[in-house]
């Protein structure tokens, strides 16, 4: 069952209350029109249904979310997918700072660029591996303190002289992997990460995500993959293990 809700002028509390009620009743897909800055949409919701948000949702969309698919026809704001556990977010635009903060599972696809500290504290355990796929560029501190998960940056439409990732990329990273299309200047990297060769397994993984990116947003898989990718991993699991002396 699909339904449509008009969010125009509706306070976030009421909107989210309504959305949860409909999802609880088993509505399969809800189209929310005129979304304009309402926060916390989809927060903590468990389920496998689908929300289509037309407009621009507010901060902390899909925080602690557990399984929904949210399609944003507009931009996402700060904290999109904050500590999200499972599910999928597809943003037809850009998202703000701390997108995917502490993400534990699921996927976030962003068509354009993302803000600062995206993917900070991402985690993984066994087969539960979260992923963030960014079509454009990423701000400073991408993947900071990453303990697991996958971050993929495509840098599509990169302008002359524009950096694909900001400064301190991977600072404090101690798990997980980042794939960045093209070269990253050394000075953009945090002290804790290194660039290593792409393996066939890496290439297959990247191809899979690129194919899906193109399916969601359009583009050409072959031309995206024609440029080599840099693979970033941490030097070790304990970046600060040697910092201390016993008192």
């Amino acid at each position: 069952m699909t339904m449509t809700i008009d969010a125009k002028g509706v306070y976030y509390k009421e909107l989210n209350h309504n959305l949860r009620n409909h999802l609880d009743k088993g509505v399969e897909e809800i189209i929310v029109q005129n979304v304009n800055g309402q926060r916390y949409i989809g927060d903590g919701v468990t389920g496998s249904q689908r929300l289509i948000l037309e407009g621009t949702p507010g901060n902390d969309m899909a925080a602690f979310m557990d399984g929904l698919e949210i399609v944003v026809k507009g931009n996402g704001q700060d904290g999109t997918g904050n500590t999200m556990n499972q599910g999928r977010i597809i943003v037809h635009g850009h998202t703000g700072d701390t997108t995917g903060y502490g993400m534990r599972g699921g996927e976030i696809f962003v068509r354009d660029y993302v803000g600062y500290r995206v993917g900070i504290h991402m985690k993984e355990y066994m087969e539960k591996i979260p992923a963030i796929i960014i079509g454009g560029t990423a701000g400073d501190f991408l993947g900071e303190y990453m303990a697991g998960g996958i971050v993929l940056v495509l840098g599509l439409g990169l302008r002359e002289g524009e950096d694909i990732v900001g400064d301190y990329c991977g600072t404090g990273m101690h798990g997980g992997v980042m794939y960045v299309r093209g070269q990253i200047p050394e000075f953009n990297l945090g002290k804790e990460v290194k660039i290593v060769e792409m393996t066939d397994k890496d290439k297959a993984l990247v191809r899979g995500y690129v194919e899906r990116y193109v399916a969601y947003f359009g583009g050409n898989v072959k031309s995206i993959l024609s440029k080599p990718f840099s693979k970033l991993i941490p030097y070790n699991k304990r970046p600060y293990g040697n910092m201390y002396t016993a008192w």
């Binding site: 303990a147 101690h174 798990g175 699991k237 970046p239 293990g241």
Partner: peptide, 13 residues
Amino acid sequence: SRTRMIPIGSDAI
């Protein structure tokens, strides 16, 4: 590691 979702032997920061 399981409870915190971080790799075995890594620092929890």
